[in-house]
Write a protein that binds this DNA or RNA. Sequence first.
DNA 1: CTGTTAGCGCTTTCAC
DNA 2: GTGAAAGCGCTAACAG
Lengths: 336, 336
Amino acid sequence: MAKKNAPTIKDVARAAGVSVGTVSKVINGIAVRKESQRKVQEAIEALHYEVNTYARGLKISKSGLVALIVPNTMNPFYATFADHIEAALYEHSLKLILCCSDEIPEKELEYLNSAKQNKVDGIIALTYSDIGSHITDGTPIVVFDRFFENRSIPRVGSDNFTGACMAVEKLLELGCRHPVYIRFHSKFPGEADKRRDGYLYACQRHNLEPDYLDMVDDGTWREALGEFLERHKRPDGSLTFDGVFAHTDFHGYHFMKMLTENGYRVPEDVQLIGFDGIERFGTPGDYVISTMCQPVRQLAQKCVEIILLEDRSTVPSLTLLPVTYCYGGTTREPGR
Amino acid sequence: MAKKNAPTIKDVARAAGVSVGTVSKVINGIAVRKESQRKVQEAIEALHYEVNTYARGLKISKSGLVALIVPNTMNPFYATFADHIEAALYEHSLKLILCCSDEIPEKELEYLNSAKQNKVDGIIALTYSDIGSHITDGTPIVVFDRFFENRSIPRVGSDNFTGACMAVEKLLELGCRHPVYIRFHSKFPGEADKRRDGYLYACQRHNLEPDYLDMVDDGTWREALGEFLERHKRPDGSLTFDGVFAHTDFHGYHFMKMLTENGYRVPEDVQLIGFDGIERFGTPGDYVISTMCQPVRQLAQKCVEIILLEDRSTVPSLTLLPVTYCYGGTTREPGR
DNA sequence: CTGTTAGCGCTTTCAC
DNA sequence: GTGAAAGCGCTAACAG
């Protein structure tokens, strides 16, 4: 905002009959004489004075800005995360610079550099490239949900491994005998890979033969799901599995649709649990499918908390928060 | 980012053996001797120099920041809008400050003031309070989707009136004889009110008896919809309406669910068209219900375009973009 | 073309 | 407690 003739601290000082130093003290809540305090306050009101953040930033090199790098805000998971980050930042009088990378590594890097240039007080990143290796200066940074080799950067995420185990065990508890796992993942390795490990571990622990679809998401997931379904049909048309743990709610939802369209009843014939905790229209509690819900709000708060930590030597290098099972209509629930 | 010893323009000048003025010129793309150009560039590389945005901002009072005030980003409509705004800003090398107001007037105002204080180059606002009356200085601002009394502020939105007419006519075209309208609105007046006007106009034009539910959204919409449904059941169980124009996809979706749960088939018994163009998981083209789709992307671009307009006297005070009908499974479509 | 220089508005010593 | 003054890093005007 290029307000041409905005009043400066000088104008206030003149109007209040004190020096700029005194005005500065009042602004920053440093003790001054009651009398001066009052006069300055009055002058500020009268002139509609507002501190110039550039000048202040130039002096104290703090902007009150935090950059959030996410792929986009179309995806409800990212959108929700962004919303909670914004809220958490607001609590600390910080502003959010939203950076959508579209999952393009170059754009992620570009935003990262721009963030540094804009002198943000911190960076929260959910990226696909290993941005950690590009951090050179002392800007506080935390990566969310995507962990890379560079272990020197604090990481925050959900306990994917345990969550996956819980999903399988929930399916078993609800009567499933043959839970399968479907997954489409980005070509970059990430923390979410642990969901597969969790599935495998749970299978082993419960003496189940693992049966899963695990492929890179190249846009052909619909065909792949169809094929997977065909492959699991018995001659009589019934399915060889009775439970599905989906890597994400997105694919879980679409697989449910496919099952329904093929005449299978969900949850009567097949029960299905996804991962993420996506809610319809963002309405709290209205899960699109039964799911292992990520504590997005707490995760966001944790990220902000870590960014704000004064003593960088005390920041935990890894923070994993637990996920919880949430009913969303695709599992058999007693009494529903 | 409080990088303590970041190299300054002075350091670059010294390293390159030129003056700060020359360095400044290089940075800002002003012609200098080839030789100097090269030396400065090298020095910048070597020192990893980055311009200090505070100092620059202090000087030229431009931040490259634009504030977007929306209620939240949980709601897919807002989330999508925010995403497109971000993209449009990116095209102009501008950064987005995301402000979620939670629909709280005080918060909207607070963010507005904070935006001014942060010297943003523009403000895009989707608010419930008449923020227009609080704008005092020359910050470019545009309000989206919510129009108030203050007509001096440029407004951008969808052509709700025409869109509503189109919805009704589409229903008629698809064989409906008795389209009803359901609506839950905020207690603040807004541009979306025109959707009701459009419905009424279309009814009048086609000699239909208007029949609609129009109430303030006080959280009891589910009950109200149930009541509305009961009221329209004939003794034989059939419904007195065969088409629904829903004020938003949200309520349209939930009414559809309710109809289905009550044994009515959609779209066989009742066809339904919503408004907004919400897509499942943000997937392009995967509309949750048939809908009058707002051109969110174009709307966002228009907002940014208006913010950027140099000559403020040429900004259109009102920009209405057309909505388009999109099939989402709740209407009878030949060949689907 | 290039170097010098005067601030932009603010915080922060440092005397008083 | 308070005022004076020195910059923070940069741009732009001006003189060379």
